[in-house]
Design a protein around this nucleic acid. Structure first.
Lengths: 248, 248
DNA sequence: TTCCGCGATATGTCTAGGCATATTATAATT
DNA sequence: AATTATAATATGCCTAGACATATCGCGGAA
């Protein structure tokens, strides 16, 4: 017996099939038609009803799972998740690039630069054994000639020995590091503080002005690279983060 | 001629092949052996050298591209990216769940509740036409009996008509909404401010104390649901975000 | 010299099967 | 009744091949 082995019509739509399916299923979920806990049809059933191979369905369901809209377990099937905790992707840009993109002139001014063996405090902050050689930097980011942010940084000289020879007059250490050292993990902590006298002087703001602080730790496969705290006056900077349950 | 059609040995390692390959390639990149701009071997070549099907290579490379470690373009091939702008996934938790998880008692105290037609200011903040019915809420989150955060919220009553009947005495509007309304997009803005007299009184802090503010806008497929601004005293809360170039 | 068309190449997507494995439901046994 | 073996099911991973499509580079024409 001869079966119809003609290939399916050459769908050359711009949007791939798996994405159409992803969108269709996503719509069921975000519209509430399939509420939390609902169990989706099996891959085989969906493949039949959408008229495609099981692997194509698998790709669509995999994308939904990546977005955490559903959970997939063998034999148990695919079920709709509870709405998640509010989650966003926060991009913390290089200050210099950000300002230049906005058409503002930028300069980094080094205020202090010291190589030392890590004190107990340094060791705690940077997460290295005390006594490890570190480079401690303080500097000011200027935008349009005016103070924009104050930066306090510790660099692990075991991880970045080249830094010992770099003066960082002119180039910001953040950019310098970013261009040289690939990092594999980063942690940010965001907080607020009242400017003390020293901070207020450097940033040319009044004492007690609220400032946003961003602390960042970076790792390169287990090894700590640097710790930095950047202090922005409250009116200079906002962090924006956006998340969407998206067309991926 | 008879070819060896015996299937490949039944690798039943716990780690799938595509992930092994992903890790191997990732290692080349983060170690610096393949620097930014380096062009990877083609899928065919990799498939040959790893001894697997092209699709398996495609899955590994796709994962690297998801992590933005590489860029893939037809004909041009797959190339290693420059290190990215610092990016992190920020989870902004439900305050109530967070405090309960920490073993602290939690309560929401409604301070003000008004239904009104959106003023121009409301309209700007919430992104709806002025005149749209909105619910304006002010409330205090208490932890262990003490003030923890102040919340100012606008809810679009066209999007959430059920909210008109809800008193929000006891239950926090954030939690109430999260349980009822699936959202598809969220934007967060994080900033700092000095507490004014009203804020200071409610939060039982001194005037001018630095506070962290989180503003959140949520959408459900184009439609604005709510805008909220939460104000935390600087010593009460930090935001932590973490990112890793990961084993996915 | 410059521009245009064409072939080569690498990825993007898809199919139709296959075996592996976790988990659940059911039947059998103690 | 409680426990254990077994079968069924749904996902997870994989292959070998196919066509589609973007784009790079080259050679010929204006």
């Amino acid at each position: 017996m001869i079966r119809d082995d003609s290939p399916p019509p050459a769908r050359s739509n711009a949007v791939p099939r798996y994405r159409e399916i992803y969108e269709a299923l996503r719509q069921k979920i975000v519209s509430g038609e399939w509420p939390a806990g609902y169990r989706l049809p099996s891959e085989h059933e969906l493949a039949r009803s959408f008229g495609c191979a099981r692997m194509t369905i698998g790709k669509a369901l995999g994308a939904l799972a990546d977005q955490r809209l559903v959970t997939r377990r063998r034999r148990a099937g695919t079920t709709v998740n509870m709405p998640r905790p509010q989650e966003s992707v926060l991009e913390i840009h290089d200050i210099e690039a950000e300002l230049l993109a906005a058409g503002v002139s930028y300069a980094y001014q080094s205020l202090e630069r010291r190589v030392r063996r890590a004190s107990t405090a340094d060791a705690n902050i940077l997460g290295v054994p005390s006594g490890t050689p570190v480079l401690a930097l303080t500097g000011l980011h200027r935008a349009g000639g005016r103070p924009h942010a104050l930066e306090e940084r510790l660099i692990n000289l075991h991880a970045v020995p080249e830094a010992r020879a770099e003066r960082f007059s002119g180039i910001s250490p953040g950019r310098w590091l970013l261009q040289r050292i690939p990092w594999t993990e980063a942690e940010h902590q965001i907080g607020a503080l009242n400017a003390d006298a020293a901070i207020a002087r450097w940033l040319a703001i009044r004492r007690n002005t609220a400032c946003l602080t961003i602390e960042r730790n970076t790792w390169r496969d287990e090894q700590r690279i640097t710790h930095v705290r950047v202090i922005y006056p409250c009116d200079q900077h906002r962090l924006v983060a956006r998340f969407r349950y998206g067309p991926t």
